[in-house]
Computed example of a mutant assay.
Amino acid sequence: MKNKQEIGALLLRVVLGIIFIGHGTQKFQGGIENIAGWFDSIGLPGVLAYLVASIELVGGIVILLGLATRIVGGLFVIVLLGAIVTVQLAAGFIGGYAYDLALLAISVYLLLNGSKLYSLDSYIVKRKGDRPFWL
């Protein structure tokens, strides 16, 4: 049987990837220009909306596949800290930043520990024989 820790990391990676794919897709399908306008309205550069949505969508796909898990986990940490500080904190814990805090904890875990089980990173290491810095 596989290591319980690796199974847990795989579950966290898959769930986080699916959630972020959903959030990124929603931003693009709902009109990224509207999100950019909303960013402007709260004092953030509108172009940041494109960056955040891209990190969410592409990062979600990449982390789901287990590629550069630690790097993407770090990007998610930055996005989530930004969301908590700029928007969710003012809304309070429940109905505000509780959900983002849970995603932040998962992202920090993956940033620190990675997730090798059923990952493209592990496949690459087996093929090349050297360990990339993000594993």
Score class of each variant (00 low, 15 high):
Val52Pro: 08
Ala53Trp: 10
Ala53Pro: 10
Ser54Asn: 10
Ser54Glu: 00
Ile55Arg: 03
Ile55Gln: 05
Ile55Ala: 12
Ile55Gly: 06
Glu56Met: 01
Val58His: 10
Gly59Arg: 13
Gly60Ile: 03
Gly60Val: 07
Ile61His: 11
Val62Asn: 07
Val62Cys: 07
Ile63Val: 14
Ile63Phe: 08
Leu65Gly: 13
Leu65Tyr: 01
Gly66Asn: 00
Leu67Lys: 01
Leu67Pro: 05
Leu67Gly: 04
Ala68Trp: 14
Thr69Ser: 05
Thr69Phe: 06
Arg70Asp: 12
Arg70Gly: 11
Ile71Gly: 02
Ile71Asp: 04
Val72His: 00
Gly73Asp: 10
Leu75Gln: 05
Phe76Asp: 00
Phe76Ile: 08
Phe76His: 00
Val77Arg: 01
Val77Lys: 11
Val77Tyr: 09
Ile78His: 08
Ile78Asn: 02
Val79Asp: 00
Leu80Gln: 13
Leu81Arg: 04
Leu81Phe: 15
Gly82Ile: 09
Gly82Gln: 02
Gly82Lys: 06
Ile84Lys: 11
Ile84Tyr: 13
Val87Arg: 14
Val87Asp: 08
Val87Asn: 06
Gln88His: 15
Gln88Val: 02
Leu89Lys: 09
Leu89Pro: 00
Ala90Leu: 12
Ala91Val: 04
Ala91Gly: 01
Phe93Glu: 06
Phe93Asp: 10
Ile94Met: 11
Ile94Leu: 13
Gly96Phe: 07
Gly96Thr: 02
Gly96Ala: 06
Tyr97Cys: 03
Tyr97Asp: 06
Tyr97Ile: 01
Ala98Thr: 02
Ala98Asn: 03
Tyr99Ala: 15
Tyr99Met: 15
Asp100Met: 04
Asp100Thr: 10
Asp100Trp: 07
Leu101Ile: 02
Leu101Thr: 14
Leu101Ser: 14
Ala102Val: 15
Leu103Gly: 00
Leu104Lys: 00
Ile106Asp: 01
Ile106Gln: 02
Ile106Phe: 04
Ser107Asn: 00
Ser107Ile: 06
Ser107Phe: 11
Val108Lys: 14
Tyr109Phe: 15
Tyr109Asn: 05
Leu111Met: 13
Leu112Trp: 12
Asn113Ala: 02
Asn113Trp: 13
Gly114Ile: 01
Ser115Met: 06
Ser115Cys: 06
Ser115Asn: 09
Lys116Leu: 08
Lys116Thr: 11
Ser119Asp: 14
Ser119Ala: 14
